[in-house]
Design a protein around this nucleic acid. Structure first.
Lengths: 338, 338
DNA sequence: ATGAAAGCGCTAACAG
DNA sequence: CTGTTAGCGCTTTCAT
């Protein structure tokens, strides 16, 4: 490792193969026109020398990096990871590589990250959420590349959008409970403001409750987002202690919902017998827990896949206008709610 | 967006600020010597022009990319995500950015990925696992940058190692059960060969059972790795059907262990009363499920943090010899085992 | 503290 | 199908 001798370049390969550097360059592109014999000789020469193609030079000269920049709040989240997978798979076939960064649910961190990412000259940039600092927004607007906001339906998008309404999704959950005759409904989420999707879900809860003329004040703030299973359990404990007549609780995610469920199990509180529980995100745990968890599937993988397809269309010049692709989340009634 | 006008360069900023491009370059480095007044004027000019520093040119000229390449089997795995977080946090302060790729638990995919990543000229490369295709190994050996294998203790490392013995960790779990008088122990894992860490864990199980003179044939293959909660549940169903006298089961991960637990709950099989269950990885679910899951914590975040620290030392020239940092996984006995 | 010259390793553009 | 020339936008190096 770390041998001091200088790495061979295309010129070295060209010399050994007896061709010009340009022909070597072509031999390394899949579509370029090089005779089979020449290409083979070049690849053999490259292999003999241990040549490794240098993208940094290619990137500068061709003004193409084949990067797609992506920001997500956290890598430790199965939903966002699914979106990245959908993106990655959709982009891989075209040789586009994801340059991933995490914001830690913080729009100021997002601003710093976007600046770093744009310096790398990505072909497009995908951000999670529709809320950004003014400077981040300006950088995205002036980046001169396709911008796609995901996981949200921003009121005034920067460019393209592939998302859904978090508020509307939670409204559907409230309606679901109300239709079943449950009216004393609580919401467990993180502390305000940081996680904008969580905030939107809580706002959707409050609006929906008010629409039904119901009390929308059973709000438990469980800590700094993203809230964990443990924080969901603690919040459920507080809810059962302070508002024991609560009939149903909507949690900001399946993880906190599962934590809430376990707290009920530890206390001998029957779910859904005495209290119904719902989550958000359709994490695997909700499909297999006992009881299974009522939840909402926002199709994270699909968001990634559709974003990837959109990027390819835009880069191919087949989509000039900013597009808004609206994903319809699906309510999944399961055993944890009546 | 996508404005056709050409993006401003350092030369444009220099012209506007009335200095040479070189001074602009210095003004954008934090340590370089530029007078405060000049730097301010330059940054203002840059801002007015909407200038964005172009890393691609910097990378080529300086022969530094500030990338650290990282390969993990899957992004949808809290353990690997934790390692990436530990890495990312440790590298961020030095301006090193992670270039992440996933192998889908496939060493041939890993080979393709490593080739792609090395073309980007990372400063170092971190791979998960110690098993690679011959060509991948050769590429890593000849890359001329620090190579760090993680999550394993390879018999003949390529360069540096930050890992632990998966086999030894599972042996400790077998010993734990045997010490409690449990002898009819099963192992639930994925189909052989693909996930090398899972394979090592199963091998450790078999070896440990044989050491104790116990039957090591209660092996359930639950599907293509990584196995899900659902597959863990299905495997537990088969185990209960075919080997109902099994006293304890070790699962390849906490996720499959939790699935196994739910299957017991659905069937009314008491855990740990009739059967003990253990997992691997110390995922959050095992700390909060009812009952909590006996598991092993391999300290994924710590692996990432130590890897980051090692990379910085090597890049600073403070660590010339290949290092092997051995992490000692911790057995966490919990309610799911007696 | 600032500047001038040169060139990193590739490929666009044009030629044949 | 292959070659020549020039240059992408920075930063190294050497000045002053």
């Amino acid at each position: 490792m770390t041998l001091p001798r200088k790495a061979p370049t295309m010129a070295d390969v060209a010399r050994l193969a007896g061709v010009s550097p340009m022909t070597v360059s072509r031999a390394f592109k899949h579509d370029a026109s090089v005779s089979d014999a020449t290409r083979e000789a070049i690849l053999k020469a490259a292999d003999d020398l241990g040549y490794v193609f240098d993208s940094t030079a290619s990137n500068l000269r061709s003004q193409r990096t084949n990067f797609v920049a992506v920001t997500i709040p956290s890598i430790n989240n199965a939903n966002f990871a699914d979106t990245v997978r959908g993106l990655s798979e959709g982009l891989k076939a075209r040789g586009l590589q994801i340059l991933l960064g995490t914001t830690d649910y913080d729009i100021f961190e997002e601003e710093r990250l976007i600046e770093q990412l744009l310096r790398r000259r990505p072909e497009a940039i995908v951000v999670t959420g529709g809320q950004h600092t003014p400077r981040a927004r300006r950088m995205l607007e002036n980046a001169g590349i396709p911008v796609i906001e995901t996981w949200d339906l921003p009121p005034s998008p920067i460019g393209h959008v592939v998302g859904f309404s978090n508020a509307a999704a939670v409204r559907a959950m409230v309606d679901h409970f109300v239709a079943r005759g449950l009216t004393r409904i609580a919401f467990i989420g993180g502390d305000a403001d940081r996680d904008t999707r969580g905030t939107d879900r809580r706002a959707g809860f409050i609006a929906a409750m008010q629409t039904h003329g119901l009390d929308a004040t059973r709000l438990i703030a469980a800590g700094v987002p993203p809230i964990s299973m443990r924080e969901g359990a603690d919040a459920m404990g507080r809810l059962l202690d302070t508002l024991p007549d609560t009939e149903a609780v909507i949690c900001v995610s399946d993880l906190s919902a599962f934590g809430a469920l376990t707290e009920c199990q530890r206390r001998g509180v029957e779910v859904p017998g005495r209290i119904s529980i719902a989550g958000f995100g359709d994490y695997e745990i909700g499909a297999i827990s006992v009881p299974t968890l009522t939840t909402i599937n926002p199709f994270p993988r699909e968001i990634g896949a559709q974003t990837a397809a959109l990027i390819l269309k835009v880069l191919d010049g087949e989509q000039a206008e900013p597009a808004t692709l609206s994903i319809l989340p699906r309510l999944l009634p399961r055993q944890s709610s009546r």
